[in-house]
Simulated assay, not measured.
Amino acid sequence: MSATRVETVAPPLDSQGFLRWAWRQLTSMRVALILLFALAVASVPGSILPQRGNNPLLVDEWIDQQPTLGPLLDRLGFFDVYGAPWFAAIYLLLFVSLIGCVLPRVGHHWTAMRTPPPIAPRNLDRMQAFSCETVDIAPADVSSHVSQELRRRGWRVRTGSDTAVDGDPGGVWVSAEKGYLRETGNLIFHLALVLILVAVAAGGLFGWRGNVIVK
């Protein structure tokens, strides 16, 4: 008896689907890191070669000393790296990638921080780390003590009580969660990076530089 192999063929992407796919790729953290690395590599010629914005005379002298390589690098924009179209393209792509990656995460993180911890499940014995102990203290006192201790350790706490259902007597419960500080620091770092890019772009658009030659 031979098995029949069924192959599924994905439908072709239309223009809207392709744009949605391209946007997801551009705003992914992997692409943002690649663009950040590409921007760092693209900035290397600006630190090694003389730049027209800083010393145009040194640029002309460098081109005269390198008659073969100099004009080629000049046409490619290596003597004006930070004003070259290819550098601006990497810069803009990185800016769009960070905006599209960070802003939705900020909104989701803000919503999650304002949302109280979830209600404790009724059937705790189904959880893997479940354990049970019996104490001679009122449930309300136990709940108050546990809540205070968790808050002291930096947990977000939510308390409540269950009503009796199908023979289950119910009782008080405490739910707690933590771990938002790391994501907050991560988002602050990326927002600071976006602000740096905005400041550099604003300085390049609205700033000016003058060169004076005194003999």
Rank of each mutant, 00 (worst) to 15 (best):
A120V: 02
V142G: 06
G100C: 05
V200N: 10
I48D: 03
P118L: 05
T115E: 05
A42H: 06
W86H: 06
G17L: 09
L26M: 11
H108P: 00
A201P: 07
F37M: 14
A38D: 07
D60P: 01
L195P: 00
V41R: 04
I48Y: 08
G154L: 05
A176L: 03
A129I: 10
L39I: 15
R75Q: 13
S15N: 12
H108D: 04
G167K: 15
V172P: 01
V214I: 09
L57Y: 11
R5D: 02
R122Q: 09
F189A: 10
Q66M: 12
W208M: 08
A88R: 15
K178F: 03
Q148E: 11
T27D: 04
T27W: 06
Q25P: 00
V174Q: 07
D74E: 15
M127S: 03
T111N: 07
Q128H: 14
P50M: 04
I213L: 12
L39G: 10
I99N: 01
L49V: 04
L103K: 05
V81L: 02
A120L: 00
L187W: 02
D136G: 04
V165P: 00
P169R: 07
W208P: 00
G171F: 03
A3V: 12
A89Q: 10
E149R: 13
N123S: 10
C101Q: 09
L19F: 12
G77N: 03
M127C: 00
F87D: 01
H145G: 00
A112Y: 04
F78V: 02
D80F: 01
S131P: 00
A176F: 02
F79A: 01
Q148V: 11
G100I: 08
W110H: 12
